[in-house]
C-alpha cells in the first residue's frame, strides 16, 4: 500500500473524530490532528485503536507518541504493516 492510499484510508478513520468534516478535504501529510483538524486530544487513542483494526496492525506506546501529524501516522502505519507482512 502506498502513502497516497493510506492517506485516503486514514481520512475515513479520522472522520468520526473530526467535528468539521470540510477540514478533511484539505488534508496533507503536514496536517496536525489537534491543531488543524481540531480533534479532541483524548480521541487520539480511539483513532489509534481504529487504525489498528483498519490496517490489522498493533501500535505500541512509543509509536503512538509520534502520531501527531498525518505524515507521522502514515509513517507508523507503513512501518507496522511492513513488520507484520
Amino acid at each position: 500500500m502506498d502513502r497516497k492510499t493510506i492517506l485516503s484510508e486514514l481520512k475515513k478513520v479520522l472522520a468520526p473524530y473530526t467535528e468539521n468534516k470540510e477540514l478533511l478535504n484539505g488534508i496533507t501529510e503536514e496536517t496536525d490532528l489537534i491543531k488543524d483538524l481540531k480533534i479532541n486530544s483524548a480521541n487520539l487513542v480511539d483513532i489509534i485503536i481504529d487504525a489498528e483494526s483498519a490496517y490489522n496492525i498493533e501500535i505500541d506506546f512509543d509509536s503512538a507518541e509520534k502520531m501527531y501529524l498525518v505524515g507521522n501516522c502514515i509513517d507508523v502505519i507503513m512501518d507496522k504493516m511492513n513488520q507484520s507482512a
Binding site: 483524548a42 487520539l44 487513542v45 480511539d46 489509534i48 485503536i49 506506546f61 503512538a64
Partner: peptide
C-alpha cells in the same frame, strides 16, 4: 472496553 495509552473507556 479498553485501557490504552492511559485512557480508560
Amino acid at each position: 472496553q479498553y485501557f490504552r495509552f492511559g485512557k480508560l473507556k
